[in-house]
């Protein structure tokens, strides 16, 4: 059996001081993501999706429990180690793209490589390769402000991919896109996942985007609520997701 690329073990996250006004955002969450998996995280607002993503992405630290990424325990790392770890092992895609508007698309994509000290001779082919995969070769010389939202998000995806991280963490990547662009981006991610074995963890509230995943973890009140697998048909999976979400709504009503 292969080792998981993300191993989350009984993770708790408590906000506020322990005695007063404390709030448990994550309550003993455990799951694994294996190499080449495309996993979605869903749940109603306030369920702890973003907290989970922040904790896994090392931007925030867990109160207790253990998180291993690519075999390394990130809960014990110091700030600088975490920064280095993020830059080498993680790829981020955010809802609002988070491209640097003062850099061209090319420079944005090249940044993670430059940061790791890759020589500029090697950077160029790598950037072109990933841009080719995402279909944004034509806009490399442009600034983010001059390209469409969909292209921006592809550029962000290219930046997340270029240094071949252990896993891509995507936080509502389709949140700021129209449905056509959203679909096209999800198709691209699915393609990257199935043809290039890229591991992806996707946090979303959009059932359609989620239906591109292979497996979805639903969380509710900081704990794992349900896990569903996609069998074959995407439309069917979509329906399945909607059904689970409907359960949440009825839970709320009861």
């Amino acid at each position: 059996m292969t080792k998981p690329v993300v191993h989350v073990d009984h993770v708790e996250k408590i906000f506020g001081k322990k005695s007063e006004n404390s709030f448990k955002a994550l309550d003993g969450v455990s799951f694994d993501i294996y190499p080449g998996e495309f996993v979605g995280i869903m749940g109603p607002s306030g369920a702890g999706k973003t907290t989970l993503l922040n904790v896994v992405s090392t931007l925030d630290n867990a109160t207790s429990g253990k998180i291993e990424i690519a075999g390394k325990d990130i809960t014990m790392m110091k700030q600088n180690e975490l920064a280095d770890f993020r830059s080498s092992e993680l790829g981020f895609i955010f809802q609002d793209f988070n491209l640097l508007e003062t850099l061209t698309i090319y420079e944005n994509i090249a940044l993670p490589l430059s940061l790791q000290g890759v020589s500029s001779r090697k950077i160029k082919p790598l950037v072109h390769q990933v841009a080719e995969k995402l279909g944004i070769k034509a806009i490399l010389a442009k600034y983010p402000v001059a390209v469409s939202g969909g292209q921006k998000q592809r550029a962000a995806a290219a930046r997340a991919l270029v240094h071949e991280p252990a896993i891509i963490l995507a936080d509502e990547p389709t949140g700021a896109l129209d449905s056509k662009n959203a679909r096209s981006l999800m198709e691209t991610l699915e393609h990257l996942n199935s043809h290039h074995e890229v591991s992806i963890m996707l946090v979303t509230h959009d059932p359609l985007s989620a239906s591109y995943c292979e497996r979805i973890l639903f969380i509710q009140d900081g704990a794992l609520y349900k896990e569903i697998h996609r069998l074959d048909d995407q439309a069917e999976f979509h329906q399945q997701i909607l059904n689970v979400l409907a359960e949440f709504t009825s839970l709320d009503r009861s």
Binding site: L100, T102, L103, E107, L111, S114, L115, S120, I123, K124
Partner: peptide, 19 residues
């Protein structure tokens, strides 16, 4: 100068400067 621009954070630093 690519070898300079693509070294570490230089691309960012220069573009900040340019801006």
């Amino acid at each position: 100068i690519r070898s300079l621009n693509e070294k570490g954070l230089n691309a960012f630093t220069f573009s900040q400067l340019q801006f």
